[in-house]
Simulated assay, not measured.
Amino acid sequence: MVNIIWVTMTVIGILFAIANGTMDDVNKAIFSGAKEAVTICIGLISVLVFWLGLMNIAKAAGLLNGLSKLFQPLVTKLFPDVPKDHPAMGFILSNMIANLFGLGNAATPMGIKAMEELKKLNNNENSPSRSMITFLAINTSSITLIPTTVIAIRMNYGSEAPTEIVGTTLVASFFSTMAAIMIDRYFYYRRMKKGGGRK
């Protein structure tokens, strides 16, 4: 579906440019955009490699295990349907910690694995379970302590203080996560009430 949307937008844009006689501007934008994308990617790779390296050091030092134990009571309450020793719980915790440090690219594979394990717990049904919906809401909002990717982009564009967004990002992501949890719980209990207590 996403591919169809992108192709449709591209075709409409090209047809509009032909009709207005601005194809030269479109060509320039394509090539300059491609060059800029490569530059940004190189800058992002360097920062992400640095933070992923720190994550590996933290893992070897036992810091990530400590953070997992710290978050486990909270995660257990958020996902009461998931057994504590189930693989899904480990992937959920890893995903949350990666998002905490702004490593969205590292968090994505763990998020996919968490969803796969949650689907197994849901007997591989096509309809999402309570835990799958909760995880999606939290993963989308996700509290971010260090917005690594955004800092890297700001550095690439010559920001004088690329890290000045850390405080505001932490506050904004905290409130967005709290809002996501409250909305998730509201609709869950509303559905339970309508269904006579059935999940």
Rank of each mutant, 00 (worst) to 15 (best):
K35H: 05
I183N: 06
V75T: 01
V166H: 05
V47E: 04
T108F: 04
P128V: 10
I57C: 06
V75Y: 13
M155W: 02
S159T: 06
A106R: 00
M132W: 03
N156F: 07
K77P: 07
L48Q: 07
F79H: 07
M155K: 10
L67M: 15
G158K: 07
I42C: 12
L145A: 14
V2N: 11
S131W: 04
K199A: 14
P128Q: 09
G53N: 13
T148W: 10
A34P: 06
T22R: 12
G158C: 13
V47K: 02
T169A: 13
F79G: 03
M132P: 15
I183R: 02
F101C: 15
V38L: 15
W6P: 00
N156H: 12
E36V: 04
P73Q: 01
P87R: 14
S176Q: 14
M9R: 02
A37L: 12
E36Y: 05
G197N: 10
D25R: 02
N123A: 10
N105H: 00
W51E: 00
Y157C: 07
A179G: 01
M1S: 09
M115T: 00
K59T: 07
S141Y: 01
E125A: 15
I92W: 00
I97F: 15
T168G: 05
W6Q: 02
L64D: 10
W6G: 01
N20Q: 15
T76H: 09
M89S: 00
N56P: 04
